[in-house]
């Protein structure tokens, strides 16, 4: 069973067998509006937690996506090049950005669970 955690930058990471799938939350896609372009990282890249690793462009603005944990990028969602709107349609499904092999699973402890993240989003309203 995958563990899903959230960052205060509105990214989610779903971890299964030491590999985390990363995307942005429904709140983030709602704030961004229609996504028109996503720049995903190269497979094989090593990243540190908090590093800007992807870019999402919407009709309103461009935003960096940060690595929620340290590790190595093992997959990137190339389908977003042709279908950036998937980020709006299914932000936690086919709108995923990249997969990362965790260097240190303990880093997950510093992230929010779903209840905490929902409370965090409510506090932003």
């Amino acid at each position: 069973m995958a563990t899903v955690k959230y960052t205060d930058e509105h990214e989610w990471i779903s971890v299964d067998n030491g590999v985390g799938t990363v995307g942005i939350t429904d709140y983030a896609q709602e704030q961004l509006g229609d996504v028109v372009f996503v720049e995903v990282p190269d497979v094989g890249r090593s990243v540190a937690k908090g590093e800007a690793i992807a870019v999402v462009e919407s009709v309103k603005a461009a935003s960096d996506i940060y690595a929620p944990v340290s590790g190595e990028v093992v997959a990137a969602n190339g389908a977003l090049a042709d279908a950036p709107g998937d980020v709006n349609l299914e932000p936690m499904g086919k709108g995923w950005f990249f997969r990362i092999r965790l260097a240190d699973p303990k880093e997950l402890d510093g992230l929010m669970d779903q209840a905490k993240y929902e409370a965090f989003v409510k506090s932003l309203a």
């Binding site: 983030a28 704030q31 800007a52 461009a62 935003s63 960096d64």
Partner: peptide, 14 residues
């Protein structure tokens, strides 16, 4: 960085 890519939601600066 941070010039032509304005942030749309609160983020730390790169």
């Amino acid at each position: 960085a941070g010039r032509c890519r304005p942030r749309s939601w609160p983020c730390r600066s790169s």
